[in-house]
Design a protein around this nucleic acid. Structure first.
Length: 337
DNA sequence: TCTGGGGTCCTAGGACCC
DNA sequence: TCTGGGGTCCTAGGACCC
């Protein structure tokens, strides 16, 4: 049995904890470069502000609705996340930190689950100021479903109760399921499968054939058969990426090189922090995909290092080598147009 | 008409997650 | 003028090997 504890509007809630004047107004947290909204408080959501909506489209909301915008402070959110997790650990040591604002708890053997969930919710909020919701289910996918439902239905849902679960699943859109994104939701709906309940009842062979093993697993999990285990230890990263969009259009390849060197340096820091070494280096660049009127380029190059390393100098050397071939090609391509 | 049959590795692309 | 930054896994196809 699993519980999923999820901080509500996590980044926005973190800002509100430290800036009480933000608690009564619509608030969005912006991405790097202040480009777009990556978190919205409840009031901002109620205004119809979308996840990922460009900041420049929100200017109007400032004067019309008193919208506040804040640049993201990921260090702060990381610290708050650690505090929440340490509180959760006082309830059970069997815990998986799934993301910065979500943890799965193993509730096997717990009989008074609903009571425990209420207690967790109350304690996290009292000690950190972060509001959260708790969903309970016999599989991780069902705990996710319960958690999503809890957000609009009282903050805590125990979907291990079969009656309640059936009631929720009959109304639960497939597009809101964990493991079903936009593309697959559209395809499922095209096949007449619109709710979690409909997916549970669909022919497993058909699901496997049209969507593959991942969706087949989701279907089983929805049936209450666990396929995804709790991962208490965080696995080592297989790749570490540092990338940024440029705030404005740039034409000087030298700037791309400088940026790549900065990102590679940062990536090596992250690598060493985790006690890892890199066996290869990958560099990519992209032209502005929003400029539909211009030709697009997505050059990338990868190279295996002769010996795995965390040494910034060696990685930088590799990056420079990759960039030489990569950018020359793009520049020639642009020049020939 | 019929073209061997596997295995492994690599890459690219597509789907998903937060 | 202005549109994020990370990650994972799966699949298909080609190269290469025996």
């Amino acid at each position: 049995m699993f519980a999923l504890v999820d901080g509500n509007n996590f980044y926005a809630s973190c800002e509100q904890v430290f800036q009480p004047q933000l608690r009564k107004t619509p608030l969005v947290v912006l991405s790097n470069n202040d480009g777009c909204a990556i978190a919205r408080c409840a009031q901002a959501k109620a205004l119809g502000i979308r996840m990922g909506q460009p900041a420049h489209e929100l200017k109007d909301y400032i004067s019309r609705f008193g919208l506040k915008m804040r640049s993201a402070n990921f260090t702060l959110y990381g610290d708050m996340s650690d505090r929440v997790v340490s509180i959760l650990r006082t309830f059970t040591p069997r815990l998986e930190v799934y993301s910065i604002d979500e943890s799965f708890l193993d509730l096997s053997g717990v009989s008074n689950r609903l009571e425990l969930a209420q207690d967790i919710r109350y304690t996290v909020n009292q000690w950190t100021g972060i509001p959260c919701c708790v969903g309970i289910g016999p599989t991780k996918t069902l705990a996710k479903l319960a958690n999503k439902w809890a957000k609009k239905h009282g903050g805590v849902i125990d979907a291990s109760d079969r009656g309640l679960r059936a009631e929720i699943m009959a109304q639960f859109p497939v597009e809101d399921l964990w493991g079903v994104g936009r593309k697959w939701a559209a395809k499922l709906e095209g096949m007449g499968i619109e709710t979690a309940q409909a997916l549970v009842e669909a022919d497993p062979a058909l699901i496997l054939q049209h969507f593959g093993v991942v969706m087949a697993r989701t279907q089983k999990e929805l049936q209450g058969k666990p396929c995804i285990a709790l991962e208490e230890a965080e696995p080592d990263r297989k790749q570490i990426i540092v990338s940024r969009s440029f705030g404005q259009r740039i034409e000087d390849p030298g700037l791309v090189g400088e940026a790549a060197a900065t990102f590679a340096t940062r990536a090596c820091e992250k690598l060493r922090q985790r006690g890892l070494v890199a066996s290869g280096v990958w560099v990519f660049a992209q032209t502005d995909g929003f400029r539909l009127d211009l030709p697009q380029h997505y050059p990338s190059r990868a190279v295996a290092l002769p010996q795995a390393t965390g040494d910034t100098r060696l990685v930088l050397e590799a990056v420079r080598g990759l960039l030489r071939g990569m950018l020359r090609k793009v520049i020639n391509c642009i020049d020939s147009k």
